[in-house]
């Protein structure tokens, strides 16, 4: 029993301290436009930064106006030098009002997460 626990503790600790951040659930760390923020002027892109590296092909987002209309977004792009961030171009200029970003992300170990947040474009 003690051998079992000592072995697992050593292995787990080694991985916890030596891993590069390439695993685990991807949770939204920060975004642009920011979560719950008010921005002046229409953003040209949505940038979502997560706690883990992403698989671009299985990650993406939708942008929905407060009235329910969808705003076209480009495909998620994950730059090699910024593997935890997906960039999505905004298809048209956003009118003043509230918007919801509905995102889904798959980290490189296939854990899938999703979520949504709102931001406002000031008049």
């Amino acid at each position: 029993m003690r051998k079992f626990y000592a072995l697992h503790f050593a292995v787990a600790l080694a991985f916890a301290t030596a891993s590069t951040g390439a695993f685990a659930h991807a949770l939204l760390d920060h975004a642009s436009p920011g979560v719950g923020s008010t921005v002046s002027g229409s953003p040209r892109e949505i940038a979502l930064s997560f706690t883990q590296n992403l698989v671009a092909g299985f990650s993406g987002a939708k942008l929905v106006a407060a009235g329910g209309g969808a705003v076209p977004l480009g495909k998620a792009v994950v730059a090699p030098g910024e593997p935890q961030t997906m960039h999505l171009s905004v298809g048209r200029a956003l009118k003043p009002g509230g918007y919801t970003v509905e995102w889904h992300a798959v980290s490189v170990d296939t854990h899938r997460t999703s979520g949504a947040y709102r931001f406002t474009v000031a008049p």
């Binding site: 891993s19 170990d109 296939t110």
Partner: peptide, 23 residues
């Protein structure tokens, strides 16, 4: 320790019916 995140492909996944997106 979150073994599903530390060892996602071995010790950290279900013995049976492990599937992507089911973590």
């Amino acid at each position: 320790f979150f073994l599903d995140d530390i060892f996602p492909d071995t010790l950290g996944k279900p013995l049976f019916a492990a599937a992507a997106g089911a973590h």
